[in-house]
Design a binder for these strands. Structure first.
Lengths: 192, 192, 192, 192
DNA sequence: TATGAATGAGTATTCATTCAT
DNA sequence: GATGAATGAATACTCATTCAT
């Protein structure tokens, strides 16, 4: 289990170092999303407008960099889940939110697909603390859905992770939609 | 310097060549399954106990070799589907056969997982005629299942391919089973 | 100094062996002329309709084969020189014949250029006995030309070889012609 | 995975990089001259005392390296021509300078012969701007020689290029001299 | 003798990572 | 802290030549 670079950095970074760090992460995100995790480190460095050395100072390993990129992605997902949880707490229908959430997350991931491949391909592990937050919010949604009698009672957070992990992200839109049509019944109370 | 050779390799291979070919395919299968399609050709050659040249004589390209490994896999699946279709024709319950088939194929693929990745990763194309055979048998099963009123009327061969393509092959057994629990309802007439 | 394969072959070849030998040489000639001496031995064997083993039985080394191809070329040149000498002996004007000969040989070589490259590139040495015959005929022509007072008195066989060796065979026709315009004066008695 | 980089390498090289670049070019020059353009890149790297990676950083392709070696050669020739033109402008006899120039360039090239073969063999293109400079200076010389009535009036820059291109560079000194004796008359006004 | 399968050293090139400037 | 030059192991593929069938 590896923590993200930022965590290990005790003292605050110099202003330009922060800037560089962001430029690097942006470039990595862009290139990895576009070309997959095989992009050479040199290419990322060039796109970021820094030298490779700088890149390595911030992320001592390609795996680290890919991991950082992935973390960002996870962070975005986490926010989406938390927002959905907020809305449910504010009175929205849980199952509706869950369905929309899944759909939205999958669509987002489909654009960013290479990022996920990155994680598995290079073996990068992403920041676990985000997962915890996401898991908490998701649990809330699930509980609410079950309380409504919509969601099947044995559904867990892991099931949703599985849902995301297996979504056909690299397929065209209509395939992804068909996919949701096929998979969502399994999550409802009525269908099983 | 590449000059065109004869396309057709009509004459039967020599006994020892056949032996080597099999050794190569076995080694490739093993290594690709275990380490993914990135395994060096040299490693495969060594594992097969032949020199690289021999390997290249049998499979002029890495893509060819990976494709051959994949074809094997597909062939096995095809047989499974055809057997199921035979049983249904012989009176067995279609939905039961379909469910068992999916389960069996997924289990088989799980062992062989990297092989699939190989196909996409290297762009190897697997023998399409197998697909045709498999598709025919599968169509038969689907039609039967729909006639029984078990299978949802809009289910197609493509849906089953999607099912296979997205199965969490690299997850442990219980995850795969859970997965089937979640996905199969979407295929039934009752659940939707 | 290596002798051609034929020379080392004490007993007469079997009929089919002779046939194979010719097929090989023809194929080698064609491919080497067309693609240069880098053509793989396998390609030559295939074009000849024999297996590589057969090819190697006749020409134990690529160098040998290339040398044999070259010999053929030299043989043709030799014939041309001898014919010119014959004509001069029959009363033709020596200088005219020499000029025409040079022109003709260069044109022939231009088509067959790769063959010459072959000789140098692979280090093949061509059958020297042909040279002897060619040299004799050429000497005759030279002597006649000098007797006529046309050819410069210090011109030797080596000069003509130099002429051929340096002709711009890979250049287009007009360049080769210009070349002759430039080089021939040096051979005449008048110009020096 | 190739991503596009910046074309312009504006900033000056670091001192040690310059040193390496020179070592590489020297080694390449030596080895290519000695063994022809087939010398392995590894061999050149070793001879230069650097790792292959370094070699490829400076010359991304073998063709580039060979081209660079050739450019050097051309550059040297260009200088020689320009110097001769300078001398003629300063009052020297044009034909004498031309003759000496040709002789000198050929002698220089003879040492370097393989380099030329390299260019053609690998398809390397040498810096064309050098040619332009050389052509200008050569034109000047030719014009002067024709004005003196020494050089044949139809002689062009191309003729001199042809002269160089066909010189028997790989032959011993006396052959090259003999060659000049034979070819130069063709360039004079008197001989044709 | 012919066949063609097997050998294996050799080739250009890439890329994560280190380290002198 | 940043730079970018250097490293060198790794990879797919070729081809002259040998040798079992």
């Amino acid at each position: 289990m590896r923590l993200e670079g930022t965590m290990t950095q005790a003292r605050p970074l110099r202003a330009d170092a922060v800037r560089n760090r962001k430029k690097i992460l942006d470039a990595a995100h862009l290139l990895i999303t576009r070309h997959g995790p095989e992009v050479p480190m040199d290419a990322i460095a060039e796109a970021a407008g820094v030298a490779v050395g700088t890149l390595y100072r911030h992320y001592p390993t390609k795996t680290d960099l890919v991991g950082a990129v992935l973390s960002r992605h996870v962070e975005r997902m986490t926010l989406a889940v938390e927002e959905a949880a907020d809305r449910v707490r504010a009175g929205e229908h849980a199952m509706t939110e869950l369905t929309a959430l899944v759909s939205r997350v999958i669509e987002a991931a489909a654009q960013d697909h290479a990022v996920k491949a990155a994680a598995q391909g290079v073996g990068a592990s992403y920041a676990p603390e985000n997962d915890t937050r996401a898991a908490a919010a998701l649990t809330e949604l699930i509980t609410a859905g079950q309380a409504d009698g919509d969601l099947h009672s044995d559904v867990t957070v892991a099931d949703f992770y599985l849902l995301l992990a297996t979504a056909p992200l690299d397929q065209p839109r209509e395939v992804r939609d068909r996919w949701l049509t096929l998979i969502l019944p399994g999550f409802t109370a009525a269908a099983r």
